[in-house]
Amino acid sequence: MTLLVNRLLGTLADPWLGEAVHRLEHRGAVETVTLPRADLARRRLRLRTDRGSDLAIALPREVALVDRAVLLLDPDRAVILRVEAENWLRLRPRDGAEALSLGYFAGNLHWRARFEGGDLLVAVEHPLATYLERLRDRLAEGRVQQVEQAAG
């Protein structure tokens, strides 16, 4: 049977919800559904929980999914949303000119990015190889260095 979700009850940070879910955890009655961060913007999704329950989510436009949201709570079961940890590709440009060029390039490809010190961090939302392929010449020529790939 499909479970219908058309509102969020709150998050695990809400004391009354946290306690209720915790009680169900002792009975092994908590299911989780995991989403990539990029999908948090969605309002309608068809998902399966870790125990195989079928979930149809249709939220009002003004409601947004968040990590640890309680999607469903009844006396016998709770369903919690978890957001996947994100991987970031950390790129260190050789100099200021390359930093400008790399920033322009990443923007052109619509890569989601943030900055840390002199590094450009790119959210890895597709297979890592597709990013490295686009960066092949820059990496091979030493214009850009791949420093690490960090989860966060």
């Binding site: 309002r43 309608r44 249709a58 939220l59 009002p60």
Partner: peptide, 11 residues
Amino acid sequence: PDFTAPAGPAR
């Protein structure tokens, strides 16, 4: 029968 009202039309 029991599902559309709060979310409005899908897009």
